[in-house]
Design a protein around this nucleic acid. Structure first.
Lengths: 235, 235
DNA sequence: TACCATAGTGTCGATAATACACTTAGAAAG
DNA sequence: CTTTCTAAGTGTATTATCGACACTATGGTA
């Protein structure tokens, strides 16, 4: 049995609880995926939800997001950025809870999703086949998706969804999935190679049943150099 | 004398306090202004700070921002948008306080800034002549300024800084101040009028010592119609 | 009536965006 | 080993957009 909680932290005015929730995006051959957790506790027990949890009073928001992500999904060292803070009154049935939402980008190949430590399920869902989500997490997910769509065009964050070395075909496919429109192969290559922010490697892809494509990597240094010179990334 | 506070709100775990802070921008003939409040209470007593305050447990974040703005500056019914949530550990010397920052845009002509209700000063400061700010408010202000610069180019929010009816000269000046670069008059007019989101009125400006310019207004309906058709505003 | 300040207007060249189809390489199947 | 299949890789011509640039018109002030 659980002990009765000792409510020893006392304040003059009532306080909302503060949580973080993280929308983790990944990409596979078909489309965008998002990581969800099956809740093992009430409320919304058994329903799918975004990974997240309470912010400790002695940690920053970013720290809380990374900690929860590690605890619940095993993911670490990934791209993570604050999205928006959701503070509607009835968003949690228990009490007033304000949540700082984050979104994260991972490449599926580099990061295994481990069974979470508290025995609840973690799984990838296609954005087109989402289950019903707990709390206001559908709203948060939608906001994250819109942010990603908007930001990927003028900031080179999309590379976070790809392995370190990728083909131009993979890069184009990533943009096509996120922007939800087809791009012309020749124009796309012309543009990307013209920006000089991807570096050709001397490797080609392996284990494909057709001509193997050359592998490239994102050139962070070149990008930063160009940025300082007023260069403006845009797809 | 103030009574000793009765700390009757009790929780199992310690909780951060939650505040809102608002960066209010306005525009005059010269440059961008921001509204600051002179603090009447400790900490940072007598220093300038952003308007803001504690979020009540029974109000949304947006509501808290609008309420604080009204209480401290008299401003209401203005453009207000969430900016970012700041949660560094030592950002407030008293205790752990997380703040949800907002930014707001007002036109100086339409809104008088009243003396604030709790007798502290409220005043406009030019962005180039800022005093030292309390807490991490300089960081928040910088983030708001960057957001405004980034967003004004592809969302028609800049009109919020102008009176309902404005000249194309005022519109261009607004963009020049925010983007911090000069724009070509003919190209600017061509672009703005070509987008068909400003509506010509039959009025001209008054009390100017030279040829009076035609007044225009932002056409919200036309903008929404165009947006749905995939039109992409950009200056 | 002259002067001053800003309003208002068009063209041309450069650059960027778009549309579009075939050859090549390499693995797999027969 | 020859054919087949799949995706890689490549260039040009057209169109649209961007950016540079200078003079006349209007109305108030001196």
């Amino acid at each position: 049995m659980r002990n009765k909680p000792t409510k020893k932290y006392q304040y003059e005015y009532p306080r909302a609880a503060l949580t973080v929730d993280i929308v983790v995006f990944a990409l596979d051959e078909e489309d965008l995926k998002v990581m969800l957790i099956e809740r093992s506790l009430k409320p919304y027990q058994g329903q799918w939800a975004l990974p997240g949890g309470f912010v400790h009073v002695d940690e920053t928001l970013d720290h809380a997001a990374r900690r929860e992500l590690l605890e619940e999904t095993g993911l670490k060292d990934i791209f993570l950025e604050q999205l928006f803070t959701f503070g509607e009154l009835e968003r949690d049935p228990r009490e007033r809870i304000v949540t700082v939402a984050y979104y994260a980008l991972v490449n599926l190949e580099g990061h295994d999703v481990q069974a979470s430590t508290d025995a609840s399920n973690a799984a990838w869902f296609s954005l087109s086949e989402l289950p019903e989500l707990a709390f206001d997490h559908a709203t948060i997910l939608k906001a994250a998706h819109e942010r990603l769509r908007g930001k990927v065009r003028y900031q080179p964050i999309g590379f976070e969804l790809l392995p370190e070395k990728f083909t131009l075909r993979q890069l184009q496919h990533m943009y096509e999935v996120i922007l939800d429109r087809e791009l012309d192969k020749r124009n796309f290559r012309k543009k990307v190679l013209g920006m000089e922010i991807v570096q050709e490697t001397d490797e080609i892809e392996k284990d494909v049943a057709h001509r193997a494509a050359r592998l490239y990597r994102f050139d962070q240094k070149a990008y930063q150099r160009l940025s300082k010179q007023g260069f403006h990334f845009e797809i």
